[in-house]
Amino acid sequence: MTDKKVLVVDDEIHIVHVVAIKLRNNGYEVVTADNGAQAFELACKENPDIIVTDFQMPIMTGLELVEKLRGNEATKDVPVIMLTARSFAISKEQQEDLQISGCLSKPFSPRELLGNIEDILYQKELIADKG
């Protein structure tokens, strides 16, 4: 069991659902949103340890969400994993500039996503311990 909280954002309800089940089954607390604007509000309110977001969403895209998160004091350091159906949608430069921790191409493996989340949170903890 872990006390980590994950915000899952996707306008595709089935994807949110399956990721939430995978994470909950592995002890994570999950909050969900179906668009970027709602996700930003939840990120400010729920203070998640990591955010998993889709790239192409109505109202606010995944990239716009990350830009907004990075511009906000409370959410500027939260790790983000981007799910995208377009392999080359995000350049390496964008990924580095916006501190996107990882990108997974759709269709993705929930198992692989869980592994990425665990790795990123572990690294975050190590950095926090050293700090």
Partner: peptide, 18 residues
């Protein structure tokens, strides 16, 4: 890719006994 992603993810969940 969107429906394909759902199919892949749910199949894997079933296979993994989730």
């Amino acid at each position: 890719k969107t429906p394909l992603a759902s199919i892949t993810a749910y199949s894997e969940m079933l296979a993994d006994g989730e």
